[in-house]
Every structure is written in structure tokens, then in C-alpha cells.
Design a binder for these strands. Structure first.
Lengths: 323, 323
DNA sequence: GTGAAAGCGCTAACAA
DNA sequence: TTGTTAGCGCTTTCAC
């Protein structure tokens, strides 16, 4: 068994409560005593037992991050950034993947919520009622879901999409295609339709499909046989499928068709040609989510809605429209 | 506060110890009593408090997974598969990323190890002595590190590399380049040198560099100015950099140069052209790691070494050598 | 087969 | 400022 507070106490010649204070409220203990305790603790290799702490205090020192699919390259940077942010505030991240299945999400939440002080729920598939119940039990931050009264992080693509429309317009494009990747609550389609219309770009829509590579491959074949000169895809992965198939059909990108993705994942920067895409800053998302959750745990920031912006990252997959 | 064992006990008209037994040793309690308890628990929405459990019993019900970089697309599938495997055995995965920094690894291990029953340490940067100390404190499984006496999962690229050499040979290649991605303990270089030599393929070596996209870009320029007809890269990301730059230099792949990656990540399947690569099965790795750790926790499988194989996945980036 | 009770390591009154 | 003490929810002897 590991070393306990008791051993530190007797080594430092004080009582257990003083040792406890030395770690939880150092300013309430005399500097020299504090030093003696810290020295003893260091020498013995003492570290507080989190189980005992949370049993006693109700706090676990962990934050739960529940995401639909860690294989989506959008998430790893978020996990990483959130871990960095949480660590600095003394929290550990407990991440779990629900495989985009409602049943797994429920089970995961049940398991995780008993081990954390609060939960970030990403694109939850649960009903509003269920989410409200949950929010009553444990501090909750929703990402890309809106339920009145629950703190929320909203990722807005408006700016990025508008820039994308301008970008295509400036290159002389007029006929565009949107490859829709389903999940209606994400509303990517709505923003795109509105923005492209505002920029007087005609927009045909393919789908909705699953947001997969093969979806892009399939859509590209349709695009190649039409007269559109620009494609905007539901995300980078779908855009990559488009790129892949267009190359196979010997349709030049961006010579004949321009392609735009969404998310700015690793895939976009490393594709050939590199992919023009709409960036959502993982750092910003992760930091805000962590902060919002920590605030909610602390009883601040009830029902706040924080919005995260986006912007176009022009790369090599977009260019002048062919004449 | 959540519902406790006590409330379930009084609801079912039994003592707390019986309720406890109902959950930990159901066969030691009379069927009808058991049923009454389970009903009461379900009605009240009782679930055991993990903090109390682990404080009392020393078991946390969690497994730690410590990896160098979740942004490496090799890891998300492993996390996912390990989570699935662990869940079925009643464990939760606590994953943490060390950012490939030894200091962070130490800190992460300190935090995580207090919250889990055992640790899977991936490509640890720690010294052997430190790892031995750690193994004495907590059940440990090492991946891609060897320390005598500590259970280990060894990923062997031998088969895949040998197949890659044969594959190139069959296509008539004779002059190859290996783009080395550093981290000497991974020994990818050694296997490759040996295998290519055995197949009478000449092998020039570039690097060692960092295993990044830009590394591949840089290496491709050197390759293009030489006379090699095939490139094998340290991993898929580096291979993607090679592909990207060769396209930019208008060197045809696989017409003029064939390219092979390692890992078979999402990147390989979605690149243009799709990338021939060496697959390491994430499912197998994750399952074996989880099982080995669980065995080690249970006191079985001391010092076992489990080996995972690999195999070549031919795709579109390799073809006949130019004449 | 079931109950009573001790105690896991820690924090937070309350006392001194 | 420091010490004493009562639990947090649970498992596990030890009785019965």
C-alpha cells in the first residue's frame, strides 16, 4: 500500500489534519510547519489518495469528455488541448467514446459520471428531457446541442462559410455543390445554403449521406458528370474522398473543380493537393469547454452559451473557375 | 447526493452487508433476497460509488493508457478498441497523452497511477530503472519497450517489411530509400535494413528526422534528384509528405517512384494515390494489451511477452519500376 | 444466509 | 495555528 497522510504526520511530528491542510489550504499553516510537512511528504513519496478525497469531499478532480468518435480526426487535438487546460487547473480528463450509438452513450455516461465532477457532452444523441435530467444530477456542458438552461458551447461556421463563399465568388465560380453529411442537428447545411444564396452562388445539394470518405468518392462521380465548378463538403474526410475520385477521373483540382472541406484536420494539411478548408480552432474549443465546465462546477456560469468562430484556410484545392 | 447502499438496504429490508454481497458475490445470497435487493436498487436508481469501492477494496475498476501523442492517427483506433475490450470486462479506460515529453510522462503517470488498477505504457521515454520501480508499485504492461521481467507487447514489423521487400522486388525495383523517423528504440530501421538486404535491394537511408509530414516533403526532394525508384517511410504521415512533394515536383507515383508507409492509418486509405502500407491491427494490439494488463493485475502472466504481427496492404502508391 | 461493526484515507467541523 | 474526531460509502471479517 502507498504512503498515507498518517505516516507523513508522524514523520513531521504533527497531526493528520495539519498535513491535510498543508495540501488543501497551505496558507492556514505556519510556514515552518508547512515546510517540515512538505519535506516529510517528499521524502516518503506521499501523494493524496484521490479515492479517499472524493469519497470524503465529493470532488473527484476529474472532468468527463464524452465524444461520438475519437477516430474522427477532429477530436484528438481537442482531447489533447483539453487535457492540457484541465491539468493546469488540477483536473484530469476522463475521455470516452460512444461510437455514435445512443445506447453506448447512456451506458458511458452512467459509468463516467460517477467518476467525474462534470461532463462535456459532445453532439449528444440523447433527447432533451434526458439531458435536462442529467444536468440536474451533474454539472454539464453541451457542445453542438442546445437545451434551454444548460451551458453550451456553440461552434459557429457562419464566418468560415461566408469567407468560403466570398473566396469562390472572387475566383469566378457560380455553380457549386454541397455534399451533405447528415446529422441534421449539426445544421451545417443550413448555414451553407443561406450564405451561398446571399453571395449569389447557385448550390446543388447531394445527400444527406454518412460523413465518410466513400461518400466523397461517390459524390465526386456525380460532380464530374455535372457542370459545377466548386464543391464544399460536410467535412475534410468527405472532401478527401472527392479529391481522390476526381484525381482518378482525371478531373484537375483546382483547374476544373475547386474543393473545400470543413474542420481543418490533419487530413487537410497533408492531402494532395492540400485542402482549402474551414478551421475551427481545437485549442479554443477545448479551452472554452474546459473553462465553461469548471465554472459550472463552481456554480458560476449557469446556462451560459459560448460561441466559437471559424475561418477559411485557403490552400491548394481552390482556384479560378474554368471558363 | 446519490442513493447509497444504506437506502437500498432499508428499502429491501436487509442489512447493508447483504446488499453489498448482492453486487459483489450474488451467489452468496438467497435468490429471493437477491431479487428483492436488485428490485429495490433498480427502483431507487442505485449504482455503487466507485470512490468508496476503491478506497475500501483497493480496486478502482480503471485501466490507464499512456500514449505519446493522440494526434498520431495510429492511436485513436487503439484507444477505441481498448475501451471496448475493457468495458466488457468491467473496466473503464483512463487515457492520457504525454506529448512525448519525459517530464509530462512522469507527471501523467503520477496522476493516473493513483486512479487505476494498472497501466499500459506506450513507447515510454523513461529509463529502465524508473520502469522497474514503477512495475514494483503497480501492474504494468509495456508496449514497444523491453525491460526484463515486465510484461510486454511487442509489435513486430518483420513480416510486413519482408512482404514489402518482396513486393518491391517483384515489381522490379532495385534501388530503394528509407526515410528514417528517429526514436532509435523503435528499431524500424534495423528490420528494414536487414530485410531489404536479404532481398538484395539496395537501401539508402535519409535521416533520422522527426516523423512529420514536412520530413517527407523534405526527403522527397532528395529522392527526386537521385536514382531510387522506391521509398519506404517511417510511417504513413511521412509517406504522405513524400507523396505530396513528389506530386508537386511532377514525379509520377507509382509511375516513376513507388512509396510505402507504415501503420495503415486513416491517412493511408484516403490519400491520393492511396498508400501501400504495412498494417498493424489496432484491434489486435488493443485487445492483447488490455488482456495482458488484466491478467497482470490478477497476478497471472508475470513478465509475459506477447508479439503482434504485421502485413503489407498493397494499394495504389506502388507499381512496376520504370525501366 | 445474514447482520454488526471495523476501517480504507481523507477532510472539515469543532475545540483548544 | 494546531489537534481531535466524526464520518464519506463501501467491503469484509467475525459472529450468529
Amino acid at each position: 500500500m502507498a504512503v498515507t497522510i498518517k505516516e507523513v504526520a508522524s514523520a513531521a511530528g504533527v497531526s493528520v489534519s495539519t498535513v491535510s491542510r498543508a495540501f488543501t489550504a497551505p496558507d492556514q499553516v505556519q510556514p515552518q510547519t508547512l515546510q517540515r510537512i512538505l519535506d516529510a511528504a517528499a521524502k516518503l513519496g506521499y501523494a493524496p489518495n484521490p479515492a479517499a478525497r472524493s469519497l470524503r469531499g465529493g470532488r473527484t478532480g476529474s472532468l468527463g469528455l464524452i465524444i461520438p468518435d475519437i477516430n474522427n480526426p477532429f477530436f484528438p487535438p481537442i482531447f489533447k488541448a483539453m487535457q492540457a487546460r484541465a491539468r493546469r487547473q488540477g483536473y484530469t480528463i476522463l475521455a470516452a467514446d460512444t461510437d455514435e450509438r445512443e445506447f453506448d452513450e447512456l451506458e458511458t455516461i452512467a459509468t463516467v459520471s460517477k467518476r467525474v465532477d462534470g461532463l462535456v457532452l459532445w453532439a449528444s444523441m440523447l433527447g432533451e428531457d434526458r439531458l435536462r435530467e442529467l444536468a440536474a444530477e451533474i454539472p454539464l456542458v453541451l457542445v453542438n446541442r442546445h437545451v434551454e438552461g444548460i451551458p453550451e458551447l456553440r461552434i459557429s461556421l457562419t464566418a468560415g462559410i461566408s469567407q468560403a463563399a466570398e473566396h469562390l465568388k472572387a475566383y469566378g465560380h457560380t455553380r457549386c455543390v454541397f455534399v451533405n453529411g447528415s446529422r441534421p442537428e449539426l445544421e451545417r447545411g443550413k448555414s451553407i445554403r443561406e450564405s451561398f444564396e446571399a453571395h449569389e452562388l447557385s448550390l446543388a445539394e447531394l445527400g444527406p449521406y454518412e460523413p465518410r470518405f466513400e461518400t466523397g468518392v461517390h459524390a465526386a462521380t456525380l460532380v464530374a458528370s455535372g457542370d459545377a465548378t466548386a464543391v464544399i463538403a460536410h467535412n475534410d474526410l468527405v472532401a478527401l474522398g472527392v479529391l481522390h475520385q476526381l484525381a482518378k477521373l482525371d478531373v484537375k483540382v483546382p483547374g476544373a473543380v475547386s474543393v473545400i472541406g470543413i474542420d481543418d484536420t490533419l487530413l487537410a494539411a497533408t492531402s494532395t493537393p492540400s485542402l482549402t478548408t474551414i478551421r475551427i480552432s481545437a485549442d479554443e474549443v477545448a479551452t472554452q469547454a474546459a473553462d465553461l465546465l469548471i465554472d459550472t462546477i463552481a456554480g458560476r456560469g449557469g446556462g451560459r452559451v459560448v460561441e466559437i468562430g471559424s475561418r477559411l484556410i485557403p490552400r491548394a484545392s481552390t482556384g479560378p473557375a474554368p471558363r
